[in-house]
């Protein structure tokens, strides 16, 4: 229970003859996904390209992506977790009543057909979007789909992958992991990394008013977070590094304009499948890069006295035997 069974996008391009998009609208949100990676490409294993692949879209409404799908499954809002759990039971041959299946908005015939196709596939891939991961159930919805993909490997090859949002979210996640052991939701207040989503994750810290300063880079929480979080950002000293004026920069005490990454500043971005891509700037910018600003802030901090009195070290929360 737990973990993730996944692959790089090139594997999908080469091999995936069965693709499910769940709670995502790639036609509008990831417009190159179909053509570059998933359904349009021909490969040695799938020489007829689109004809050799089956695409299923699962969503609560008919989006533009439905046109590209072979099968569109419209489910009732808030029934994702239930449907995935039904699939987990059915693939193992456990009985589920027809009326229970119908609650999700799909008939037994449709669900049976979906399972038959999943098991028949040579290489199945599930992509899931914010329609799954940010609706009621949140991380458990994602966990459910990851679990289903892992369990499908008892029958055939199956993988799953989240459709990450804009910006270099994956890169931040990857680097936090190698430096601290955790992807996000980390506190350093005891002098070493500690992890507890819900306690240390940004949105929760802001909503509860647990921080007395904020340093924001490559994000615009002022546009996406709940109002109490935004109110707290306005109350405390907030520093924003951003090439643009944003909702957050408007409420910030300090806004440092930086060169846009990938356009005027070099670096590395991690693709949603965690492959690092070098960014080669096309333009010059009069503004410093985020990296340079952070480096200079760091140097200035290094000249200040250590945050604890001389001779004192932070103490670990005692480990339990």
């Amino acid at each position: 229970m737990g973990g993730k069974v996944t692959c790089t996008l090139g594997e999908v391009k080469q091999r995936a003859d069965f693709i499910i998009y769940w709670g995502g609208n790639p036609a509008e949100c990831h417009p190159r996904h179909f053509t570059k990676y998933t359904i349009m490409q021909k490969s040695r294993f799938l020489p007829r390209g689109r004809k050799d692949r089956t695409m299923v879209l699962v969503d609560i409404r008919e989006t533009k992506s439905a046109k590209a799908a072979d099968i569109f499954l419209q489910i009732r809002p808030g029934k994702d977790f239930e449907l995935i759990t039904i699939l987990r039971a059915l693939i193992k041959g456990q009985p589920v009543a027809d009326e229970q299946i119908a609650e999700t908005g799909l008939s037994r015939a449709v669900v049976d057909d979906l399972i038959a196709r999943m098991k028949r596939a040579k290489f199945g891939c599930m992509f899931f979007g914010m329609g799954l991961s940010m609706t009621r159930g949140k991380h458990m919805n994602s966990a459910a789909l990851l679990c289903l993909a892992a369990e499908m490997n008892a029958f055939t090859k199956f993988v799953a992958m989240p459709m990450r949002g804009h910006g270099n979210v994956t890169g931040a996640d990857v680097i936090m992991r190698w430096q601290t052991g955790f992807p996000f939701g980390i506190s350093f207040n005891r002098g070493y990394p500690r992890y507890n989503p819900g306690e240390f994750s940004t949105v929760d810290v802001l909503v509860r008013g647990d921080c007395d300063a904020a340093f924001i880079i490559g994000a615009d929480p002022g546009a996406t977070m709940p109002q109490p979080a935004i109110d707290h950002l306005a109350r405390i000293p907030t520093i924003v590094l951003d090439p643009h004026v944003t909702h957050t920069s408007r409420i910030a005490r300090v806004h440092i304009t930086t060169a846009p990454q990938g356009i005027a500043a070099p670096g590395t971005a991690y693709r949603m499948d965690e492959l690092p891509m070098p960014l080669k700037p096309a333009l010059k910018s009069p503004y410093p890069s985020d990296e340079e600003v952070v480096r200079r802030i760091n140097e200035a901090i290094a000249r200040k006295p250590f945050w604890l009195p001389d001779g004192r070290q932070p103490q670990m929360v005692a480990t339990l035997g």
């Binding site: 737990g2 973990g3 993730k4 992991r177 190698w178 430096q179 601290t180 052991g181 955790f182 992807p183 350093f188 002098g191 070493y192 990394p193 500690r194 992890y195 250590f306 070290q313 932070p314 670990m316 480990t319 339990l320």
Partner: peptide
């Protein structure tokens, strides 16, 4: 990948504290 999969282990291990010359870690 393994690091992300084992937060329960990170919690029970000895940590390296950040000092003036050393980065923190687990």
């Amino acid at each position: 990948f393994a690091r992300a999969m084992t937060p329960e282990d990170h919690r029970r291990t000895q940590a390296f504290m950040r000092t003036k010359t050393r980065r923190s870690g687990l």
